[in-house]
Amino acid sequence: MSEFFAMGGYAGFIWPSYAVAFGVMAGLLLWAWRTARQGEAEVEHLRAVGLDPRRRQDAGVDVP
């Protein structure tokens, strides 16, 4: 087992490169997922409350 993690003495290069590759991809997916979900939630919210001006004010939608 420890032999596997040692990677023939190159552990210091192999594991960081896997970490970078998977870390960057995970970060990319997380960012994409969160921006998509947040944006879509906001659109839904605005569509739901946006038609009625009084409800809009109650819901705290900023009207520039």
Partner: peptide, 28 residues
């Protein structure tokens, strides 16, 4: 596959951004 998933999600995010912009404009 990761590329594809990220691309679809980002297109959705950008599309939502556009719709939000339009909605804000139409509301004002």
């Amino acid at each position: 596959a990761v590329f594809g998933v990220a691309l679809i999600l980002r297109i959705r995010a950008l599309y939502a951004e556009r719709r939000l912009r339009q909605l804000r404009l139409s509301l004002t």
